[in-house]
Design a protein around this nucleic acid. Structure first.
Lengths: 331, 331
DNA sequence: CTGAAAGCGCTTACAG
DNA sequence: CTGAAAGCGCTTACAG
């Protein structure tokens, strides 16, 4: 391994000059060329540990994700990865494995690694999160959730819910079950539902009941089974595509055909929703783009450039076969 | 931020003594307790950059994955993450984004980060991979593919194929299409097929045709459509669950019911295969366990402990509804 | 524009 | 068992 000293010697200059060249300081045209040439020739790459130790900063962006096995997370990470790579930043991924305490721990752990910025995907922000962020003094961009004290990139969950509400009303549904998730998750548990509720509020003649499920498919199967014992609506609107998949399973198990026996919708736009049969009506989220924007924003923040507090991304409703058209039919 | 100097002063010893304490050198019981106490009190954590710079090694394990949005990759990463965390190693994930040149680049890039071990998930190993590994002098454990020169943790693809062959023969299938992938991927493209072929070779009375598809679901849809124009078998055995999902989609599009019109199987055991309808017959792979074992092995290698060249993991066949039982029926 | 010097926070022989 | 010293490979004021 070559060091800066080797390069300096070979170029006949002091190592401080090489360092200046490396860091964009003032170097004469002549020495610039000389150093450039030598570096290429020797295939020299600066030792990042020495740099970080001395400069007391790194070009690492940490990302805390709730879990690794999620379509939304994977897509978001791909967007982050792409942007950071382009901008010469390094990505450090850390999974909290669905454990909120681990999220907090990871903030401290990443701070110890001297990351210069943090991308945070968390279902909710507690006082402990804020305390950790404050203590570590790291710039943060949240993804998927909004918080008054933090910068964020979010999807337009409220509008997504609203669009879904309008869509199914247009299809003639009036006996409607909404299978949501915990309200501790503001984006998924509250906003989607509120948008949905607003759309339905504009119609007087429909009956809506709200239910709750866990995020995992098997939890959704169980929740749907309970729901269907309680009541048989014409449609079940699910807060996520995963939950919708679980509901479809439950319907099949009960021999209720989709969509003729019951309609189902999701949110997310996972690839698999297009492949299954019947294809699932859903709202497509721009996860990858969210990742990319969050990465751009955190870089700006690291460089002390101004960044809007919240960036809201569009969603798009995709009507497919899992919703029956009841319009004009007598139910 | 406290440094080793602060601790040394507070404890009334030299910093070399503190360092020795930190690294398990010989320290008297008395000073050990004193230092321990001070460290806790000051909440001291050593600066990893300084450590790495001086010691010229890290406790980082790099992992190169082909892509992030894959069930197999996510599960494997979860296994790796868990084990590494338990053993106090740090995980650095790097995605090659389906680009083999990027794989090579990432090997060099990770070497520059001074990772002490590399976990490699790659579809094939070329001379360039070997060159990079040689030049960087990093211990490597491959996951999912075998190579005579490298340590590896693999799934028993041959046996998986064999079990699948037996399974569908038992179900009475005799007109069989195998929808595989490129043979450049030894594990998925060659071994599964060879195992399958062996099982079928034990039966004289069946007709098998081999086809090829890409890995993505939409590529599989197209491949299945071509296949079905060419020939209508009683079953399509697919080299991965994703391909099987694509084939199911194609069958639905052609209004061929599954399994009564055609049977379909996959390999992998993705969660979604259980949720869709009909549920998919597949071979369940232990991705998470593979990750865990690979992590154990790379740690052993880093510590210069002996490790078997290849670890083979069991798979398990899961018969579900997507395969029709033709036994005893007249076709 | 350029170089000598100090120092980032550690570890590691080496003496005692 | 313990401490003083050298040094890992850089960056950054400071003089010139």
């Amino acid at each position: 391994m070559k060091t800066i000293i080797d390069i300096a010697r070979a170029a006949g200059v002091a190592k401080s000059t090489v360092s200046r060249y490396l860091n964009g300081g003032s170097v004469s045209e002549e020495t610039r060329e000389k150093i450039e040439h030598i570096i290429k020739q020797h295939n020299y790459v600066p030792n990042t540990f020495a740099q970080s130790l001395k400069a007391k900063k790194t070009s690492i962006i940490g990302t805390i994700v709730p879990r690794l096995d999620s379509f939304a997370v994977s897509q978001t990470l791909m967007g982050i990865d792409e942007e950071l790579r382009d901008r010469q930043y390094q990505l450090l991924i850390s999974s909290a494995n669905q454990d909120m305490n681990r999220e907090i721990e990871e903030i401290y752990a990443l701070a110890r690694q001297k990351i210069s910025g943090l991308l945070l995907m968390a279902a909710q922000i507690t006082e402990q999160h804020l305390k950790a962020i404050r203590e570590c003094r790291i710039p943060v961009v949240m993804i998927g959730q909004q918080h008054s004290l933090l910068h964020s990139v979010v999807h337009d969950d409220f509008h997504a819910g609203y669009m879904m509400g309008q869509h199914i009303l247009n299809k003639g549904h009036r006996r409607i079950a909404y299978l949501g998730v915990t309200e501790q998750d503001i984006a998924v548990g509250v906003k989607r539902k509120e948008g949905f509720r607003k759309a339905l509020g504009e119609h007087k003649d429909c009956e809506v009941r709200y239910y709750e499920s866990g995020f995992r498919m098997n939890e959704a199967v169980a929740a749907a089974e309970r729901l269907l014992e309680d009541w048989v609506p014409t449609i079940i609107v699910c807060a996520t595509d995963n939950i919708a998949l679980g509901v479809m399973k439950a319907a099949f198990l009960k021999q209720i055909p989709i969509p003729s026996g019951i309609s189902v919708t999701g949110f997310g736009g996972y690839d698999v929703t297009e492949i299954i049969h019947p294809a699932l009506t859903t709202v497509k989220y721009n996860y990858k783009r969210a990742g990319k924007l969050a990465a751009e924003n955190i870089i700006s923040l690291v460089n002390r450039e101004p960044v809007e507090m919240v960036t809201i991304l569009n969603c798009e409703i995709i009507g497919r076969e899992s919703v029956d058209n009841l319009q004009g039919r007598i139910i």
